[in-house]
Write a protein that binds this DNA or RNA. Structure first.
Lengths: 373, 373
DNA sequence: TTGAAAGCGGTACCAT
DNA sequence: ATGGTACCGCTTTCAA
């Protein structure tokens, strides 16, 4: 390889120059735990030499014998639309992960997810022993996979999956609570006719299987409507059933298109809802302009609250009232839980599932119900 | 460690069960290049066993002897405000890096940047031999450091630094071109009185040293104003000199506050500019509302164009016209250049510096000059 | 075509 | 307090 450059010095080099054995140098420089005692003078000498040479323990050699890497793997399953190392969702989680790993002196390895079989690829990487624990973001739906996974990599924390496996911890969104909070917020503002923008990718009856999050959100919505004694009509839930226009489900602006479609549908009803809950906040980017185009003001004539949130929703006009999941906090929890287990502060065998409560971020897209209604 | 779990099988395990030597198994499973020939039957047998056991070569052992890791390091210098693994700037670059590394089958290691001396920490990590090449984002100002760096890690690609060192490649923003493009855009819209929101963190005379990007942008602005024969007044460049109110330079909304301040300053002049170039696009979030609060419409009465861009600037109201740097494209270039060098497709000794042209993203914050002016 | 052995750069144990 | 030695899991060379 780079033989033209002076190679980094090895422990042997340092020991030789310091006139001592490798074991001694190892003790002084790398704090190895063998029962070796070192004299003060020798230690000084070794340290001085090492400093001059710029010695640093080779990582591969050290982790080969230590069987520990002080590194966490991060796997972002590429099977979902938008799944992406640099997406805003991943970024928010990473922010929390990063803060904790930095603090604990861990590094992060971003797993390559290319190739024909990304899930198998991940298992393979786990068997290479490059990291002590794995974070799984954008969990694949297949619970089987997690069972396989924990067999190669016993320390895993995943996000938002129903899968269970020994040694698998999960940070869960509380989708139902988020939807409930949204409905309650609108009801407090006086709205009674409240609709929901669902998911047109999956037929309603397959929702629980194909889109767990979507199912939970819709269920939470229905629960809240019922609990509050609000009126309900099937058509107020925009989903697969009412879809009239085809949209490319893989397109970047899919949710935006869906939002606009939903608004057109609702406004075609004889009693349109005065407020909508957007199952995914991004629908707002389609829904709000569609209303405005129809001469309806937001807020004023219509209100909208979205599930999920990003900082820049504040810049939209009107700024978007959303129910935010504490992504960063979840990232923190996931990382510290993983590190605790790597350092045996937590029992490896027992699995944890923690729910994180969403919170309403009050901005301007949801206002009081219009007088005339 | 995790001795309760069945440890991953080693090459020896496979060889033993297959009834052959490790050398043979290594050849079959890991394609080692030693001059070992293997019979078809043996190969089959080995492969079958390996498959059944879920064998995968231990990474540490392999890279210890191979002296190669197929991994790139990513170092985000934490010395700048906003520098952050999950910031939108870093994300955009990462998007490009990721695409290329995935394609080439490389992994990425995010370097921990904590500790009292992050720069030294990075050098240390480079000496550990954990990655074959290093990407430096948010380059520190100190050119000395890069000289040290290339001595531990001969393959480095950095972003936007004036530093030079053997083996250091740099992806450069063309700040001057960006500022020029901004001025030209406004001039084409008929504006003649054009101002600039500079940087109040650094006194103008120390700008070249303390804030290279800011210096270049201001210089580009001045060049363009002169080249186009536009009028110019010192007060139209808002910077350190005209700052009246103290702002916390470390605060998240620093640039926003600066933008609002700049507008108050400009509008207090007897001949305020009709359009401003925001040295950093984020200033718009302070500048535009300040104008609106003063009863001035944007666009209409005032126009603004920012340097730098993010997707969600489209959601601001009015949507922001900016000059965008091709961050993702730069990330791609950086990664492929680095990988080329790791795989000896590019000469390690020669350094490259590539400039990337910015491009105007036309949206709505910059309009024609008002009639009355 | 194959096996045995040396060595990559460390750590740990056992003598001394 | 220190040096020698075996070994972590893999690759490579050399001898058979």
């Amino acid at each position: 390889m780079s033989d033209v450059f002076p190679p980094n010095p090895t422990l042997k080099d340092v020991a030789q120059q310091a006139g001592c054995s490798a074991a001694v140098a190892s003790k002084v420089l790398n704090g190895s735990r063998g029962n070796v005692m070192v004299g003060k003078a020798t230690a000084e000498r070794v340290r001085a030499i090492a400093d001059r040479l710029g010695y640093r323990a080779n990582f591969a050699a050290r982790s080969l014998v230590a069987r520990s890497t002080r590194t966490l793997g991060l796997y972002i399953w590429p099977g979902q639309p938008f799944a992406n190392m640099s997406g805003s969702y991943e970024s928010a989680i990473l922010r929390g992960v990063d803060a904790v790993t930095q603090q604990a002196g861990y590094d992060m390895l971003l797993l390559n997810t290319a190739g024909p079989d990304p899930l198998e690829h991940c298992l393979a990487k786990c068997r290479e022993g490059r990291f002590d624990g794995l974070l799984v973001v954008r969990s694949p739906a297949d619970p089987q996979w997690f069972s396989q996974l924990v067999r190669c990599m016993p320390r895993v924390v995943a996000f938002d999956t129903t899968a269970e496996a020994p040694g698998l911890d999960v940070a869960m969104f509380d989708h139902r609570a988020a939807a409930r909070a949204a409905v309650e917020y609108l009801a407090e503002k006086g709205h009674r006719r409240i609709g929901f923008i669902g998911n047109t990718r999956v037929p309603p009856d397959e929702l629980a299987v194909g889109d767990f999050a979507g199912y939970e959100r819709r269920t939470g919505f229905l629960d809240a409507v019922q609990a509050l004694g609000l009126p309900h009509r099937r058509e107020w839930i925009f989903d697969y059933r009412w879809q009239r226009e085809a949209v490319d489900a893989q397109a970047t602006d899919y949710l935006q298109a869906e939002g606009a479609q939903a608004v057109r549908w609702m406004e075609s009803l004889d009693e349109p809802p005065t407020a909508l809950v957007a199952g995914v906040y991004r629908s707002a980017f389609g829904a709000v302009p569609q209303w405005q185009q129809m001469g309806l003001a937001v807020p004023g004539d219509r209100s909208l609250i979205g599930l999920g949130d990003r900082d820049w929703c504040a810049y939209f006009s009107p700024s978007l009232t959303n129910v935010a999941n504490p992504l960063t906090e979840m990232g923190q929890w996931a990382a510290s839980r993983l590190i605790d287990r790597c350092e045996q502060r937590a029992d490896d065998a027992e699995s944890m599932r923690k729910f994180f409560s969403p919170q309403v971020v009050e901005r301007q897209s949801a206002g009081p119900v219009p007088e005339s209604q």
